[in-house]
Design a protein around this nucleic acid. Sequence first.
DNA 1: TGACGGTGAGTGTCTAAACACGTAATATAG
DNA 2: CTATATTACGTGTTTAGACACTCACCGTCA
Lengths: 168, 168
Amino acid sequence: MSSGLKDEIKQTRPFGSLQEEAALNIARTYALLDHSLAQALKPFDITPTQYNVLRILRGAGASGLCRNEIGERLIRRVPDVTRLLDRMEEAGLVLRERGGADRRYVTTRVSEDGLKLLANLEGKICEIHRTQLGHLDDETLRELIDLLTKVRARSLRRSSGPTRTESS
Amino acid sequence: MSSGLKDEIKQTRPFGSLQEEAALNIARTYALLDHSLAQALKPFDITPTQYNVLRILRGAGASGLCRNEIGERLIRRVPDVTRLLDRMEEAGLVLRERGGADRRYVTTRVSEDGLKLLANLEGKICEIHRTQLGHLDDETLRELIDLLTKVRARSLRRSSGPTRTESS
DNA sequence: TGACGGTGAGTGTCTAAACACGTAATATAG
DNA sequence: CTATATTACGTGTTTAGACACTCACCGTCA
């Protein structure tokens, strides 16, 4: 069981350390999950990151969020939120508006089309999650979540995540 | 503890399901680990994927591997192994040679420089892993590895990983 | 022996990521 | 009230990822 990854990637040598094996397991598992999510989202012409943005903006509601706030809430930090939003604006999923008290800020909000897309996606996404993780019971999932939270605990003590090169 | 991710990404709503929360935890954790690895490798002018290739080829030894075999052993499958190897060949890290019985195959091997780079990297990589995961004891790491292996178990029953668009 | 399907590798092209730099608006200090 | 720093956003450019397509070689079988 614990040497499953070695077979998957046809590795001949033992892992250098348990830490390395754990890191590779995380990477491998993420690759599988992300790939299937990306495939599922492709018919809707959005990427997992764009889906992430849509959900963030839906959560923010009518007041919207500025570019940097969106960047900070992304699961995977990306160094070019501007053009990510450019593409989503062009696709009609979000609306941007400069103004308000501080004229540096550009507020981004989900559009009606964006909300409709999210609603359409909801069932599909649940199905993906069931396919990916439905074979594990709640206790196992909770345990996994707790362990991953522990993994991140060290990083969190020192920074709020990968530093983005923009605005740094 | 289990709501750590919500704070990290400043999420206001509860997660849709435990499955979703687990998937997002995996993604978030991977993003942190991958980012710090990429930063550590940057002074050596290679990416995590290139590092992965170097280790695969070192494991394969003098007989080398053909392009598709390399692609199958990567932690993260990439759809353009050819140009990945192009870049590494240009950097002097690998050698490619067409020939042998079946002249369709192109055998790739690590170069001397590639091996030297790997040797130089070894200590650095161990240090990274200690920084990332050194706060967890062996039992905890083993547990995490076992859980992630369970997560992947379902995918493995149906395919050997994300299908690559090339050669499919 | 020569047409055929399958396999291994590579190319063209578009999109996205990564990184350094630049601009505009606000805050702060003297 | 001006000079400077800081913040928020955008742009230019290089590199890598994604996907469809083509070419070369092999085995097979009529």
